[in-house]
């Protein structure tokens, strides 16, 4: 996910950048101390997925900034003011509202929301896709054959350099692809990236111990930054 940081406070930008370090899926492509420069950047590069945006900035506030964007990306607001929360959620693109000083725990939660957040136009698109495509399986290229794999059969996907290894109950497929590419094809509610090298099928977990999960006979590491998201996704007693 390509992200920007916009905040007039250098310390605040540094802190958000540090908090993002824990997430492999987040890349900070640029940071700005004012909204005007960020707008120029966005006009030239429309591939930004999300923005960490300060509300209170001199001359041009975070809300002014959102209003000037034709199709704003997902926004996580960062602010020292609790008073704007209600205003913030009037914008469809606002995913979360973080009050400074931002704690790691709260930030992790916001990233979890960001990953699952669907913009109104994306919701329409995904619905249209769901109508026209089957969402229960995917085809992978194995030795020049397109092999169908049902999502429900997949246990683990492991990154192996330029390849990924898709492990099902009875087979393993080595495919020339990346975790990122396959992650985008998998249903969010069933699969979770728990480590930079592993995506797991949550329904296949046998048990969880400290920083690892057991799936069939495989012990899969869970990175510290993904653990809270994993715990959130479990039906805990």
């Amino acid at each position: 996910m390509k992200c920007l940081i916009i905040d007039d406070d250098a310390t605040a930008r540094l802190i958000v950048r540090q908090l993002c370090e824990g997430f492999d899926s987040i890349t900070i492509v640029e940071e700005f101390s004012n909204a005007i420069d960020a707008m120029k950047f966005l006009n030239a590069d429309s591939s930004v997925d999300a923005i960490f945006l300060d509300i209170h900035m001199p001359s041009f506030s975070g809300f002014d900034f959102i209003q000037t964007l034709k199709s704003p990306p997902k926004i996580i607001l960062t602010t020292s003011d609790r008073n704007f929360a209600l205003d913030a959620f009037e914008y469809d693109c606002v995913v979360d509202y973080l009050v400074k000083p931002i704690t790691k725990e709260r930030f992790d939660k916001a990233i979890g929301k960001l990953k699952n957040f669907k913009m109104p136009n994306q919701q329409d698109t995904s619905k249209a896709n769901a109508d026209s495509e089957s969402t229960d399986e995917l085809y992978v290229n194995v030795d020049r054959r397109l092999v169908k794999i049902s999502f429900s059969d997949i246990n683990i996907i492991e990154a192996k350099g330029d390849y990924i290894k898709i492990k099902t109950n009875d087979k393993s497929h080595i495919v020339h692809s990346t975790l990122k590419k396959i992650e985008d094809k998998l249903p969010n509610e069933t699969f979770l990236k728990v480590h930079r090298s592993y995506i797991i099928n949550l329904s296949k977990i046998i048990d969880i111990e400290d920083n690892s999960v057991l799936i069939k006979q495989d012990i899969i590491p869970v990175s510290r930054s993904n653990r809270s998201e994993l715990m959130k996704r479990l039906n805990l007693l």
């Binding site: 020292s80 003011d81 000083p101």
Partner: peptide, 13 residues
């Protein structure tokens, strides 16, 4: 007030 707003973040850090 704007200056205090900016200093506020450093106080909390």
């Amino acid at each position: 007030a704007e200056d205090v707003h900016k200093l506020k973040h450093k106080i909390s850090i």
